[in-house]
Amino acid sequence: MDRNQIAKWLKEPGKMGQKYSLWATYFCTGCGIIEVPPVITARWDAERFGVIPVSSPRQANLFMITGFVTLKTLKAIIRTYELMPEPKYTVGFGSCPINGGMYWDSYNTIKHLDKYIPIDGWIAGCMPRPEAIFIAVTHLWTLIDKGMADGYIRYRENYRYYRRNQEMVLGKLEWPPLYPVD
């Protein structure tokens, strides 16, 4: 951790701030959420990395999609993602968001979450252990340092693609588009 290198803080305080204060939306998607309470409580303390859970997506900048995604959950995930302020980072947790995982031939789950929401990184496993979450957080720091964690920029620039995918699987969406779609 380069949290105590004052020179780096003075050069780019914004990036260092985003790295060492990742506030996670406490959104309990699927089976992966069972791994999150041990991470944020006393046994594997996530607060020493600066990661705390917050209750409102408006206050958060990290979104972990923990487990399988059904159609109903996809609506809530899209709505929560659009409520978050920029810059925001998403992490896919478990193998279900990557390629469908255990539910690869189900009629009700989403197999490739990347088509509907931009994902910055994946954590493989059918539920990953808490140590894997910490490795993911430190890897996310490296990505933020190099400027490669740009999911939100991709969402803004390719919004027509994402919105069309969302409408194809969910039908007509009730909320207006986040960015202007002509």
Partner: peptide
Amino acid sequence: DNNYAAGSYIP
């Protein structure tokens, strides 16, 4: 109506 409503969009 662009408000936090626990993941729903409420008119």
